[in-house]
Structure formats: C-alpha cells, structure tokens
Amino acid sequence: MTAYDSAADVGLLILRLVLGLTMAAHGYNKFFGKGGLAGTAGWFDSMGMKPGMFHARIAATTEVTAGLGLAVGLLTPIPAAGFVALMFVAAWTVHRKNGFFIVKEGWEYNLILAASAVGLATTGAGRFSLDYALFGTSDLASLLHGWWGLTIAVVLGLAGGIGQLVIFYRPPAKQGG
C-alpha cells in the first residue's frame, strides 16, 4: 500500500463517518428530539406524506440505518441508496418550492448528501470499512463499488424515493387564492 492509498482510505473513512453519523443523528432526532416521533408524524401529515406515523417511522429508521451503514462501510451502495431516496423525497416535498440554495431552505443540502453518498458507492468504502474486512477484493467486492456501486445506489435510491412519492404523497391544498 502506498502513502497515497493510505491517505485516500483515511479520506474515505472521514467522509463516511461525517455523512453517516450526520444522517443517523437526523433519524435519532426524529425519534427522540423535541416532539419525538409523534411530532415528526404530525409534520409529515401536514406536508402530505400520509399516514404521517408510518412515514415518520420509515424515515427515522432509514436515516439511522443508512447513516450507520454508510459510517461503517457495510454494503455501501445499499445505504447510499437510502440517502438518495431520503434526500429525493425531502427535496421534493419540503425544499423544492424554495429553490436551490439552503439559505432559503432550498434543496442544495439534499443534493450534497445524496451525491456524496453516491460518490462513496462509486469509489467504494475504502480499506477501513466492513466491506473491505468482510469481502476484501473478492468477486462480491466488485459489486460494492465502481459502476455497479453507482448503479445500485442511484437506481435503487430513485426507485425507492419516486415510488414513495407516487404511492403516498398527496400535497396539501393551497390556502387562499
């Protein structure tokens, strides 16, 4: 292993930990933050994701599991797909109407989280990951990065996010007019 390889693996570890633990914290907050799961459910109901309690549980659980999965680098394209689905739904239901920039509560942050997770699925989780510890450089490992990792993360993530919106999202009627 060269010094570059070692530094790149540390870089991937840092990125995985920051992205993954940030996402897991969002899920934890949905479960246990102010208002708890009931408050999260009410918020989901108000934005048209009904039934709110179902979506609160799914979102919180997915955020925690995808976040922790990415942080430890376990089957990396799968948690990356979770990021894509979560961020696509959040961008569409909450942030789309506000434009791109986060300073106006736009979808910029959602894009950065999803694209970063897809980038990790494409590069692979690195040597300091469970993917590497469990699969090393085996044939199965080749499905956990590169074009396969990219495809799994994007296709599975978009299918999950779009499917959830098509089945469940009913935007509230606009008031006034």
Rank of each mutant, 00 (worst) to 15 (best):
T137M: 11
I112G: 00
A125N: 07
T137F: 08
F83S: 11
E105K: 10
Y109G: 03
F88L: 13
L120T: 04
T93V: 15
W107H: 14
L140N: 02
A90E: 07
K97F: 00
G106P: 00
G136V: 01
F100H: 00
R127F: 02
A115M: 15
A114I: 14
F135P: 00
I112M: 15
F88T: 12
G126S: 10
A115W: 14
V94L: 09
L143W: 13
A141T: 03
A91I: 11
R96A: 15
Y109D: 05
K97M: 12
A80D: 04
A80K: 06
G146H: 09
F101P: 00
T76N: 03
G99T: 04
V103C: 02
F101S: 12
K97P: 00
H145N: 09
A91Q: 13
G99S: 10
P77T: 06
S129E: 09
F101V: 08
T122P: 01
H95K: 12
S138G: 11
F88I: 01
V94W: 06
I112A: 14
A141R: 01
A121S: 14
Y132A: 09
N98P: 01
F100Q: 04
G124T: 12
S142Q: 04
L143H: 15
A125I: 06
V103E: 08
Y132L: 01
A80F: 10
L140S: 02
G119C: 07
V84Y: 10
L113G: 03
G82W: 14
F135K: 00
N110Y: 15
L120K: 05
E108C: 06
H145R: 15
G106M: 05
F135I: 01
V94N: 03
I78E: 10
V84G: 02
A81S: 12
S138F: 12
F100I: 08
I112V: 12
F83W: 12
S129T: 07
E108K: 04
V103H: 00
G106Q: 10
V103F: 13
F101E: 03
D131E: 06
N110F: 15
S129C: 03
K104R: 13
P79Q: 10
K97A: 15
L134W: 10
N110Q: 15
P77H: 07
G146K: 00
I78Q: 08
S138L: 02
E105Q: 09
T137I: 12
K97Q: 14
V118Q: 06
I78M: 11
V94T: 08
L144E: 05
A115R: 08
L140C: 02
V103D: 14
D139H: 11
R127V: 13
G124W: 12
R96D: 01
T122W: 15
V103N: 11
F100C: 03
L130V: 00
F135Q: 02
Y132D: 15
L111E: 07
L134E: 01
L113N: 06
A91R: 10
P79W: 14
T123M: 15
A80V: 01
N98S: 14
F88S: 05
F83N: 04
L143N: 01
A80I: 06
F100E: 04
Y109F: 13
L113P: 05
L130D: 01
G124C: 07
V94Q: 11
W92C: 03
R96T: 00
A85T: 06
T76I: 15
